[in-house]
Design a protein around this nucleic acid. Sequence first.
DNA 1: AATAGTGCTTGCATTTTGAAAGCAGTTGAA
DNA 2: TTCAACTGCTTTCAAAATGCAAGCACTATT
Lengths: 187, 187
Amino acid sequence: MTDDHRSGCPINLSLEVFGDKWSLLIIRDMIFGGKRHFRELLRSQEGISSNILADRLKTLVEIGMLTKADDPSHKQKAIYSLTEMAIALVPIMAHLGAWGRRYLPVTEELSIRAQLMEDGGPKLWELFMSELRAEHLGEARPEGPSVRQTLQAAYERVVARKSMEQQPVDHIHDSSESRSRAPEPKA
Amino acid sequence: MTDDHRSGCPINLSLEVFGDKWSLLIIRDMIFGGKRHFRELLRSQEGISSNILADRLKTLVEIGMLTKADDPSHKQKAIYSLTEMAIALVPIMAHLGAWGRRYLPVTEELSIRAQLMEDGGPKLWELFMSELRAEHLGEARPEGPSVRQTLQAAYERVVARKSMEQQPVDHIHDSSESRSRAPEPKA
DNA sequence: AATAGTGCTTGCATTTTGAAAGCAGTTGAA
DNA sequence: TTCAACTGCTTTCAAAATGCAAGCACTATT
């Protein structure tokens, strides 16, 4: 049972599910990064540690946002899949990305996907969701180029351009991350 | 300063702002409940404790989601106001509510607002946001009936109906909360 | 036979959360 | 003028969550 919720409010219940700093990032990496394995998810931008990842994956499976299965190619590999419950978060991800892009100090390369999602609007989100259903639930893959690959390509183009602009040569002498908003104070 | 973010990803940065169990509930109570004072916010459905509330309000003000001002009517009262940054969360609240309603064990009375928001769609959200800008930012109030009052009235109608349906008489003999989905197993 | 994965688990220190009580004022009614 | 109720918090201390580092029992590759 364990039906001890703080209240039956849908917003509260949603927060009980992913009101923490990691759960949504795992879903994000599965949706936008196409990650399916533990070790892949461990290499997140934000550096989740293995015990936390293990705990969250377990919880997400219990809740019904993910399913876990054996990978036929490797006896020790597990494959995690999104359920419809998790795929239904795509619009929320898009809104969160748009909101963060507008009000928070995002970097250009890590927010280009959010921008494309925002520009694409609900139609693109639906297409992406169909694609995810194909990948994770065995449905028929929609026609046309993959949304995830399109987003990924845009990301890589930004990374390439930025490394050209700032370091056309080969020696790296600075590691400060450039933000796409709020340029350096003039010291 | 304190620019130590885990990454410049907009979803990550959003979670750094309200990736916890309480911050969004405070915003929810201000948006949908019209609450502006500490003691009002303390009486949340979920029972936030005063130290957590104080801490979150402080953080939300620092981040720029809220502003704090003296209440002219009482020398010890503070009034909290939403900024545009917080008002821009209305669509996310709507999506979160819709998602929770679909996948989690919500109660009917606490999810009727979410249903009306979902039915109303982006047009209603925009109207609600205008109303909040009037209330919190001093802009001109949109014409027509108040969205919040409409939602509140619907909530009260459900509460009234449910208390009629289940307890037409006066003695209460059961305190189990009825959920609007997942009826009791037939034991 | 050695090396590089595989999904985790185990300690253990640090940080965050949470319930309860308290506090220095202010206000409104008797 | 006294007093109870109310104001936005703060303090205390226990419990829970988080996070880093290391390790583990395998499996697959070379």
